[in-house]
Simulated assay, not measured.
Amino acid sequence: MTLNLNHPVLSALLPVGLLIGIGFVAGRLRFIRAESVRDLSNLVFLVLAQALLFRTMSAVRVERLDFGAMALYHAVAAVLFFAVLAARGFDSRAAVLALASIFSNTVMIGVPLVGLAYGEAGLVQLFTLISTHALVLLTLATVVLELLSARDRAREPGAAPRHLARTVARAVRNAVIHPVPLPIIAGLLYAQTGWGLPPVVDRPLQLLGNAFGPVALVLVGVTLAQTAVGAQLKGALAIAAVKTFVHPMLMGLAGWAAGLRGLPLAVMVVAASLPIGANVFLFSQRYRRAEALVTASVAVSTALALVSVSLAMALVPYLPQ
């Protein structure tokens, strides 16, 4: 029996594993030292991600979006997010781990995988989800994390009490004026003008955005080399299992119950079965919460996705019509 490296699942996941592996070797050999990781994280989070998110959203026309499957996907993710948040103690660390349980690698892995498996029609479905994926889920996590952080600060000795409405308003403001949602919102608003990006602007943004996925994954590998994975393995397996198996199972059941069928259902279930996206790693770095555990979870979920994605693609066609 020969291994088919052109299989859609393998051809999408193996490059991700190789990039993480390259970063791991670079970290072990100290090509990138531990004290440089924070600066690289800021580069990816504050420069490369900005370019990718703004450029992607600058081509999205609201009237062309099919909101049905996308809204259901986000609803399922929100339910799972709050379930994990409650199970893990309703604190800021739990918010980061809850995000890891629902945020898929829709761009780096999802785009080539769905393109190979379902063609252009599948990509249209996936791009509709991608257009709001980071905006909805990262904003949700940011609002919750800001609220929990405000609660923690209010409990500190000598802290002045804050009115709930003011705390909520501050959290929403911090969620919007934030390195991830802000370029998404700006890009979406710009897209509605219909002007398009001039080549002199579009080309640099494209180059920066193209660097996001590879550099972020290499950075995951570097951090992994500096993390005691053995100590994090049990926790990482639990988070990765929720992300790659529980999430798609809930999406499939909810989609089927809501009357979603065929290609839209298949793409949404496959998207839910994808491993944890690099944005979660950057999110944990940004807020300095559960960094080692999230790093290990990204790597473990990438390995588990070889099974979860294959199962999703194989089983969805057998759901009752």
Rank of each mutant, 00 (worst) to 15 (best):
A121K: 10
A121F: 01
A121E: 15
G122P: 00
G122D: 04
L123N: 03
V124P: 01
V124E: 14
V124G: 01
Q125E: 13
L126V: 02
F127D: 00
L129V: 14
I130C: 06
I130A: 04
S131I: 09
T132S: 13
T132F: 12
T132N: 00
H133T: 08
A134P: 02
A134G: 07
V136A: 09
V136F: 13
L137E: 05
L138D: 04
T139D: 02
L140K: 05
A141F: 07
A141K: 12
A141L: 12
T142A: 14
T142S: 13
T142V: 11
T142C: 14
V143M: 05
V143C: 03
V144F: 09
L145I: 01
E146M: 01
L147N: 01
L148P: 11
L148R: 13
S149E: 04
A150G: 11
A150D: 09
R151N: 09
R151Y: 04
R151E: 10
R151L: 03
D152K: 02
A154V: 06
R155S: 13
E156T: 10
E156F: 00
P157V: 02
P157T: 08
G158T: 03
G158E: 01
A159C: 10
A160P: 00
A160H: 01
A160L: 05
A160V: 08
P161I: 07
P161S: 07
R162Y: 00
H163G: 11
A165K: 12
R166A: 15
R166K: 13
T167G: 15
V168C: 14
V168E: 07
V168R: 04
A169F: 09
R170P: 02
R170Q: 15
R170V: 14
A171R: 00
V172D: 10
V172W: 05
V172C: 12
R173Y: 15
R173P: 01
R173G: 14
A175S: 10
A175L: 08
A175D: 13
I177M: 11
I177G: 00
H178L: 09
H178T: 06
P179E: 09
V180S: 10
V180I: 14
P181A: 04
P183T: 08
P183Y: 08
P183K: 14
P183C: 08
I184W: 07
I184R: 03
I185T: 03
I185N: 06
G187R: 04
G187L: 11
L188E: 04
L188V: 00
L189A: 10
L189G: 01
L189C: 06
Y190T: 06
Y190N: 05
Y190E: 08
A191H: 06
A191Y: 07
Q192T: 15
Q192V: 14
Q192C: 08
T193P: 03
T193Q: 12
T193E: 01
T193F: 11
G194W: 09
G194K: 12
G194A: 04
W195G: 06
W195K: 10
W195M: 13
G196Q: 05
P198K: 00
P199A: 12
P199G: 12
P199I: 02
V200M: 13
V200C: 08
V200A: 15
V201T: 10
V201W: 09
V201G: 02
